[in-house]
């Protein structure tokens, strides 16, 4: 069974559904929209704060865009768990590892491409409002942060996709991951200190800092985030291979 044929099939599937396509577009539009709104209004005022960190702050809107990335990963998988759709898919592609690998590749590829475009566009858009405070891509770590932000969005999409395969539901995944990624780190962040650093979002966002503090550096932080995603994706593979469809 040819992997490229399965890949082609998964590409047709994902582009013919509104949910995933909409979520992917939302990654870009939400991030750019929030960036424009925040930077046009309070961007320059905030830049004067003593705690201001021009590079990290440039990705403020990523906090919102990442929810759409989670939604993309979850909906791209959960469509298979409606009304026995998975049975039709697996009857066409009975090699489940092929099927799943193609699906993950399409989800990861699309999320990475969208993530990179989103990251660079948000950075440049935000800085265009910053006047004399503006930094460019030549700012130390700026390109690394933009690439890292794109990879980070793709990793979150894969985290959601893997978990959606384990739980067989997009809603369940989002109701776990959105609080997990958005709220838990804020709540336990200062209390648990170093433990929170290893949660997927904190670790993954290390790459956005010009000079990250704590145990994890920019790339090791991203690697920890990738490990979370890999664990979710592999757990998904294990369940898919093991379970009756």
């Amino acid at each position: 069974m040819s992997f490229t044929a399965v890949l082609h099939s998964e590409w047709i599937k994902i582009k013919s559904l509104r949910g995933p396509a909409g979520s992917l577009l939302a990654v870009l539009l939400v991030t750019l929209g929030v960036t424009a709104l925040a930077f046009a209004t309070i961007g320059q005022a905030e830049a004067d704060n003593p705690g201001a960190e021009p590079l990290y702050d440039a990705f403020y809107a990523l906090n919102f865009g990442q929810v759409a990335a989670l939604a993309f990963g979850a909906t791209a998988i959960s469509s298979e768990y409606l009304n026995g759709a998975l049975r039709v898919s697996l009857a066409a592609v009975p090699r489940r590892t092929h099927f799943y690998a193609a699906k993950i590749a399409v989800i990861g590829g699309l999320a990475l491409a969208t993530g990179l475009v989103t990251a660079f566009a948000a950075f440049l858009l935000g800085q265009s409002f910053m006047g004399s405070y503006a930094i460019g891509l030549d700012h130390p770590g700026a390109v690394r942060a933009c690439v890292g932000a794109g990879v980070y969005l793709a990793l979150l999409a894969l985290l959601a996709a893997g978990l959606a395969t384990v739980l067989r539901s997009g809603v369940a995944v989002l109701s776990i991951l959105i609080p997990f990624v958005l709220i838990v780190p804020f709540v336990i962040g200062d209390v648990a200190g170093s433990v929170a650093e290893f949660l997927p979002d904190r670790a993954g966002q290390q790459v956005l800092h010009a000079a990250p503090a704590g145990h994890l550096g920019p790339w090791s932080g991203l690697a920890v985030c990738a490990a979370w995603s890999a664990a979710a994706v592999l757990a998904g593979l294990w369940t898919l291979r093991r379970r009756d469809a």
């Binding site: 013919s16 509104r18 026995g84 759709a85 009857a91």
Partner: peptide, 22 residues
């Protein structure tokens, strides 16, 4: 197996094209 298996928001052609491609 199940007539409901085709995803509601896909067109019939896209559903079949995806199966054919695989």
């Amino acid at each position: 197996l199940d007539p409901q298996a085709a995803h509601g928001s896909r067109t019939a052609r896209a559903h079949l094209l995806a199966l054919a491609a695989s």
